[in-house]
């Protein structure tokens, strides 16, 4: 176990991390988007208003006062309506977005499994795309050379790997994306509604791999509307509602409450 370099002086934890150490912590996190509230037609008008300080925008808190602790080796679910702030929360953890207020601490390498095959180019061959996608994930050329055979093997695309990816089926496209993103054991794996990839055998294979990561100590963040899946997989769940953590705790309880609230609505 490699002891992580801790920059945070307020966190005086002993290394190596105990098995129940937290991987992700959100402290009083808020994300505020500004949405222009009136249409400004021209550039000139914009500049004039800007100088006069009259550019009006509506403030919209996509997340507010969010506190979460997610532990090592935990499968953590995020549930809530569309637009509740789940995706924004994932962006914070994936380092894509910095919070407007509060603090986000993430230990280790985050592997996003958001939209598979994003970053592939249809004109390039499968092989070229594996190297390109690996670079996007931050791997060096040498690392990718070591990973390459395993990736192709896992995606079961040996025959087609030197064909341009535009000739691939969407299932092949997704398989290669999954294989590149999950080749190395990540510390945090983010899964956003894309657990079902390819045909049934491949789905089983990718599911097994995710479970291996969990057993190997990875933290898995799962965002899904499929409550049955969340129930089956997650240790704990946070229910996000209008940018707040409405409830968080053991999966069974939260899902029961969540379902109850749906019944009351209808």
């Amino acid at each position: 176990m490699n002891s992580p370099i801790v920059f945070d002086s307020s966190l005086v934890t002993a290394n190596p991390l105990p098995p129940q150490a937290e991987t992700i912590r959100l402290e009083n996190v808020g994300v505020r988007y500004r949405i222009p509230s009136e249409r400004i037609a021209t550039f000139k008008e914009y500049f004039i208003r800007r100088l006069q300080g009259r550019v009006k925008s509506k403030e919209f808190w996509a997340l507010r006062n969010v506190d979460l602790n997610i532990l090592r080796g935990e499968v953590f679910g995020l549930i809530g309506h569309n637009g509740a702030g789940k995706s924004t929360l994932l962006k914070l953890i994936a380092r894509v977005l910095k919070p407007t207020e509060g603090r986000v601490v993430v230990r280790g390498r985050v592997a996003p499994l958001l939209e598979m095959g994003a970053g592939f180019h249809g004109e390039l061959t499968g092989r070229e795309n594996v190297y390109l996608n690996g670079a996007l994930l931050g791997f060096s050329h040498q690392e990718m050379e070591a990973k390459y055979p395993r990736i192709v093997d896992f995606a079961e695309l040996q025959e087609f790997i030197d064909a341009p990816m535009r000739t691939y089926s969407s299932g092949m496209w997704a398989r290669l994306g999954f294989a590149v993103a999950t080749d190395a054991q990540p510390d945090v794996l983010i899964i956003d509604e894309v657990l079902a990839v390819g045909d049934e055998p491949f789905q089983r294979k990718s599911f097994d791999r995710i479970m291996q990561f969990r057993d190997g100590g990875a933290t898995i963040l799962l965002v899904s509307h499929n409550l049955i899946m969340v129930e089956a997989l997650c240790h704990r769940v946070a229910w996000i509602d209008h940018g707040h953590v409405k409830q968080s705790g053991l999966t069974e309880e939260i899902i029961r409450e969540y379902r109850q609230s749906h019944k009351n609505e209808t």
Binding site: D8, R103, G108, E143
Partner: peptide, 13 residues
């Protein structure tokens, strides 16, 4: 050796 392996990301730093 990967860039983010074993490192801690803290948005407040």
């Amino acid at each position: 050796q990967s860039p983010t392996v074993g490192s801690v990301y803290d948005s407040s730093l």
